[in-house]
Design a binder for these strands. Structure first.
Length: 604
RNA sequence: UGCCCGAUGGUGUAAUGGUAGCACAAACGACUCUGACUCGUUUUGUCUAGGUUCGACUCCUAGUCGGGCAGCCA
């Protein structure tokens, strides 16, 4: 859909992780920097993931490295191909024109290849050259899948058993919990901890063969039940799960747990820097323990943690996002109000703006909340540069120019984008009857109101200065028509065009206007931290969407999907990529223009 | 209350023993055929207490506050 949005060259960001990478590059510790973005395909990607994507791909592109897209799919009961496909699309959209050349994809169906390193057997899962990656669903390539490594991971588990570093445990899930102890009390050894290597080997194979029901047994790393770190108290590394997997089908009935699969997936792909969020910090000793216990021949990956992105007025939790979808609070994952990447895209926000925002917040280990104003500023700033200006009236009120004859049409020359001289101009027709924004007229205005008022003057942008002569009201006293005279000499270039009037308002010719649906989106929540009290649904903004029929200048009849527009003085908008049809455009309001008047007018 | 991590204006982030800076926000002003954009000015900060040092946001000690960890989730 949307075209690539290349970055204007800016100084490469710095942060503590990039500093570490820079040190490693200086030391030539690795032949190539390889990162990875490893989502679990159990939901859609959101703005928090965007930060991780930009960090991981950013590190890769700044160091001539590579960033693998990997499905972290070790839990068949929660994952689905729908999510795999959305993830691929969202990642490619976000990095298009910026880091496509670093995207690590593999040949479709490829599995790790056996090799020998320093006389030791080894496996490696490598990428396909970036040039061969085209369309998101190109038939020859695909992302990496942790589930493609199940054979190797199983082998590593067997290896651990043989080294006496893992054992099959018959404790029930409940007993396993009890034996684990609590953070301030050491755990207790499982009675199966001393089981012989041979017996564990036999049992593990029979687990694999499907001889036992779910939960009957598990494979555990043998570390230290008294460790102050819970994750070192003989953590489970394999569980029995008789379930069909979206990628491996029915081949397996045992699945490795995250801690075991993740570090090994990183190793198999030759990841150098495994970057994740803070909650995995306490898992790092286990990550290292597994890798170090196996005596692997290639350099080991290392894990680095950073703080999640949490913008105000948003929810970033897959579970809660799912709830919004399932409860029909929003219209699907890609509802333009959702903080999902697909929702953000549909809302009309350029990928470059999203990238700029998630980069601008920095990377630290401090749990912070980011003011949504920073996000909105990035969006407006990006859109200001590229949006074509158009005239549109959202809440029309009729205005008659009494000194223009019925049927007469005057062509006005309008600037397409004052920020971009190359954007050119266009003709907008005006006639005797026009619509103006109802907010732009007040019969009894407050002080410092400089739009139209009885007896007052205002400029119709790109046209002429008008003066309000009289009002026509209906029986109830509501204004039905504003009657004005136009100073026809005040057109651009005309004799009185330099006359100063304080206000300039937008308009559309009533006879030329086209009607179109405009969806006015606003923040999804009314509370800065919607989930602060644990009840985010209570803070859903009832006015997060208002659908109106607006009056648009005629040129908007052939608006383009990839083009961003600004309805002058109002908002940035984009065509809805799903509901817009030829001849029936539907516009989504991406974001309003900043408005210093209604934000805080004097006397209010 | 076991272990791990963190703390710089309203918010986010820089300064890696040597002038506390930037962005957003806010306020005021200039400009304006978008009350936008742009430009200018201003307000506001190193969690606390000790210590080391000529000098501490930075190093040390103790404390305070916040976050994370007890899924066969990731």
């Amino acid at each position: 859909m949307s075209a690539a949005t290349p970055e204007i060259p800016t100084p490469a960001p710095t942060d503590f992780i990039r500093d570490i990478v820079a040190t490693h590059v200086g030391e030539q510790r690795y032949p190539k920097i390889v990162t990875r973005f490893p989502p679990e395909p159990n939901g859609y990607l959101h703005i928090g993931h965007a930060k991780s994507i930009c960090l991981n791909f950013g590190i890769a592109r700044e160091n001539n490295g590579q960033c693998n897209l990997r499905m972290d799919d070790t839990n068949p009961t929660k994952e689905d191909v729908e999510y795999v496909e959305s993830i691929i699309e969202d990642v490619q959209w976000l990095i298009a024109g910026w880091a496509d050349h670093c995207l690590g994809f593999k040949a479709k169906g490829a599995l790790p290849v056996a090799q020998t390193v320093d006389g030791k057997p080894d496996f490696y899962a490598g990428p396909v050259p970036a040039e061969t990656i085209g369309h998101p669903h190109a038939p020859t390539v695909e992302p990496f899948f942790a589930s493609d490594y199940f054979d190797q991971i199983y082998g590593y588990a067997v290896e651990l058993i043989k080294k006496g570093k893992a054992y099959v445990c018959d404790l029930s899930p409940e007993d396993t919990d009890t034996y684990r102890g609590s953070p301030d009390k050491p755990g207790k050894d499982s009675p199966f901890r001393t089981r012989s290597i041979e017996e564990s080997l036999d049992l593990f194979q029979r687990m694999k063969n499907g001889e036992f029901p779910n939960g009957a047994r598990s494979l555990r790393a043998k570390i230290d039940m008294a460790s102050p770190n819970i994750w070192l108290r003989d953590p489970l590394i394999y569980r029995i799960r008789h379930a069909e997997h979206h990628h491996t089908g029915n081949k397996w009935c045992i699945y490795p747990l995250y801690d075991f699969a993740h570090c090994l997936s990183d190793y198999l792909e030759g990841i150098t820097h495994s970057v994740c969020t803070l909650e995995f910090e306490v898992h790092r000793p286990l990550y290292d323990w597994i890798l170090e216990s196996l005596g692997l021949p290639r350099p080991l990956p290392h894990q680095y943690e950073f703080a999640k992105l949490i913008p105000t007025y948003m929810i970033v939790s897959k579970r809660k996002l799912i709830a919004l979808v399932n409860d029909n609070v929003v219209d699907g994952w890609n509802d333009p109000r959702m903080p999902t990447i697909s929702g953000i895209r549909r809302r009309g926000i350029p990928a470059s703006a999203l990238r700029r925002f998630v980069t601008s917040v920095g990377v630290t280990k401090f749990n912070s909340v980011t003011d949504i104003a920073v996000y909105e500023h990035a969006v407006r700033d990006e859109l200001n540069k590229v949006a074509l200006r158009r005239l549109a009236v959202l809440r029309p009120i009729k205005l008659v120019l009494t000194n223009i004859a019925a049927g007469q049409v005057i062509e006005c020359n309008a600037t397409n984008n004052p920020e971009d001289p190359n954007a050119g101009t266009r003709i907008v027709p005006i006639s005797r009857e026009v619509f103006i924004e109802s907010d732009d007229f007040m019969e009894v205005p407050p002080p410092k109101y400089f739009r139209l008022r009885p007896g007052g003057e205002v400029r119709l942008k790109y046209a002429f200065i008008i003066k309000c002569d009289e009002l026509v009201k209906d029986a109830s006293g509501a204004i039905t028509e504003i009657r004005c005279t136009a100073d026809l000499d005040s057109r651009t270039g005309g004799p009185t065009s330099d006359r100063k009037v304080k206000g300039t308002i937008h308009w559309v010719s009533a006879t030329h206007a086209i009607d179109a649906e405009v969806r006015l989106y606003d923040r999804l929540f009314t509370a800065a931290e919607p989930d602060a009290d644990g009840d985010f649904k209570a803070h859903v903004n009832p006015k997060s969407l208002e659908v109106i029929t607006a009056k648009l200048e005629p040129s908007l009849a052939d608006a383009k999907l990839d083009q961003r527009y600004q309805f002058e003085r109002l908002a940035y908008v984009a065509l809805d990529p799903i509901d817009s049809k030829p001849g029936k455009p539907v516009f989504n309001r991406t974001i309003t223009l900043k408005d210093a008047w209604t934000a805080k007018p004097p006397g209010r």
